[in-house]
Simulated assay, not measured.
Amino acid sequence: MLMKDKLLLRLDEMGAALEQHEDALLLLGLGSIGAETDRMDEFSDLDFFLLVAPGSKERFIRRLDWLEEAHPLSYSFLNSLHGYKVLFQDGIYGEFAVFEAHELKDIPYTGGRVVWRSASAADLKVPLDNSSRIPPARNESIDFALNEALTNLYVGLGRYLRGEKLSAFRFVQGHAINSLLSVQHLLETEVDHFPDPFGNERRAEVRFPGFAKQLPEMMQGYVQLPESALQILGYLESVYPVNQPLSDAIRQLAHRAVASR
């Protein structure tokens, strides 16, 4: 059975199990089991909200019998006040949260799909999107984002030379790359392929193929950090009028870092 079919079947099994719990109201699928089922593949998982009757939230969080009735669990981890990360015994992975309906107005999410509701919740109105609560992952200022990336390179190389290589790695191949991703839609024509409002790195290889081709040289790892910084700087110079004194200073630090190994 294909993973897509397994996931859809598991949702049906969960709905059948929830029918036996009168305080369970509605199952809201998100991500690839929500409004984006077209992108489901063998690596997809279950991402969902369970809405319950007022006053019953703690019961559904404290006891996962309602989930095990659908299929036994081999692992569960309470990763927030609202829900879990779980692994079923057949290898299906999932992440979920339990809410009362009135709480949804404060929860950031998008792309919801009602996959089950109880008869008692037939009139329950649930928004399928609350994207206004999602902090923007994109930046509309090239000046800000690319200068942020440049200063990330400078600071990161200084930390590398000081011996703070883990911090340097995060500045150069983390923060700087994130800044570039935040404005990539302004630098390259984006392929419309399920953009994720929570993170521009999702499906970036399909959405920004030109940029993606350069990523291996920009992200050469912990040891090759100076070389990565030089590649990022070269990319920045190709798309933006980089301040020459700052560019020279970054190159000097990078070459010094290479020589120090």
Rank of each mutant, 00 (worst) to 15 (best):
L2D: 15
M3H: 12
M3D: 11
K6G: 00
L11N: 13
L11D: 12
D12W: 02
D12M: 09
G15L: 04
A16M: 13
D23I: 07
D23N: 14
L28A: 03
S32H: 03
I33S: 05
G34D: 07
A35K: 12
E36G: 05
T37Q: 15
T37W: 09
D38C: 09
M40C: 14
E42I: 00
L46Y: 06
F49G: 05
L50R: 03
L51M: 08
L51K: 08
P54V: 01
P54S: 11
G55K: 04
E58F: 05
E58D: 15
R62H: 11
D65W: 09
E68W: 02
Y75I: 01
F77A: 14
L78P: 07
N79F: 14
F88V: 01
D90V: 10
F99E: 06
A101S: 13
H102E: 15
E103W: 13
K105A: 15
P108A: 07
P108T: 07
Y109E: 03
R113H: 07
W116H: 03
W116V: 04
R117D: 07
S118K: 05
A122C: 01
L124V: 11
L124F: 01
V126Q: 09
P127D: 04
P127G: 08
L128V: 13
L128T: 10
S131E: 12
I134V: 12
P136L: 13
N139H: 11
F144M: 14
F144I: 14
F144S: 10
F144E: 13
A145P: 04
A145H: 06
L146F: 06
L146S: 10
N147L: 04
N147A: 07
A149P: 08
L150H: 04
L150V: 06
T151R: 15
N152T: 03
N152A: 15
Y154P: 03
R162P: 00
E164L: 14
E164Y: 15
F169S: 02
F171I: 03
F171T: 02
A176C: 11
A176P: 06
I177T: 06
I177R: 14
N178A: 10
L181P: 02
S182P: 02
L187A: 07
E190W: 02
D192P: 02
F198E: 12
R203C: 01
E205S: 14
P209C: 05
F211C: 09
A212Q: 02
P216S: 09
E217S: 13
M219G: 01
M219Q: 13
M219T: 10
Y222E: 09
L225D: 04
E227K: 12
I232F: 03
L233E: 01
Y235N: 00
E237R: 13
S238V: 07
V242K: 01
P245V: 07
S247G: 06
I250W: 00
I250P: 05
I250A: 06
A254F: 03
H255T: 12
R256S: 15
R256I: 09
A257E: 04
S260H: 13
R261D: 10
